[in-house]
């Protein structure tokens, strides 16, 4: 099966590979995996507390070319979006952009799950922060 040019581009030049401090209260971390293929994907966002905009996004994926490309593309799209805008990213957007074949659609699902998991983690942290502030008063 041949990879599309866009997949190859992301695979050969992945954007935003790396990691951020998962204990930072403005960082949300999503860790997802697919047992059937052994892929595991970590995706992190850093949200600017003043603007609510995602300033930075990083990922590290162990998996096939499509999984790496899907998460690489996801981090590109996340930067500059608000958290709510980020939640609107659908796996089908990734499928279309990368021209993923049907057998690789699960890679895009994984990337969408990773985005949602990262945002959930961030929101939980913000909730925890708020309750800590309330207790302090």
């Amino acid at each position: 099966m041949a990879y599309s040019d866009k997949v190859l581009d992301h695979y050969n030049h992945p954007r935003n590979v790396g990691s951020m401090d998962k204990n930072d209260s403005h960082v949300g971390t999503g860790m997802v995996g697919a047992p059937e293929c052994g892929d595991v994907m970590k995706l992190q966002i850093k949200v600017n507390p003043e603007t609510g905009i995602i300033d930075d996004a990083k990922f590290k994926t162990f998996g096939c070319g499509s999984a790496i490309a899907s998460s690489s593309l996801a981090t590109e799209w996340l930067k500059g979006k608000t958290v709510d805008e980020a939640l609107a990213i659908k796996n089908t957007d990734i499928v279309n952009e990368l021209a993923l074949p049907p057998v690789k659609i699960h890679c895009s699902v994984l990337a969408e799950d990773a985005i949602k998991a990262a945002i959930t983690d961030y929101k939980v942290k913000q909730g925890a922060d708020v309750s800590a502030l309330v207790q302090a008063h």
Binding site: M31, K60, H106
Partner: peptide, 23 residues
């Protein structure tokens, strides 16, 4: 059918282990 990761998501602590092993 065997079921995909959506119906059977692996527990997060297992994923952490998997990630660390891959690193």
């Amino acid at each position: 059918e065997p079921g995909d990761s959506r119906t059977n998501p692996p527990p997060p602590e297992l994923l952490e282990e998997v990630f660390d092993l891959n690193m």
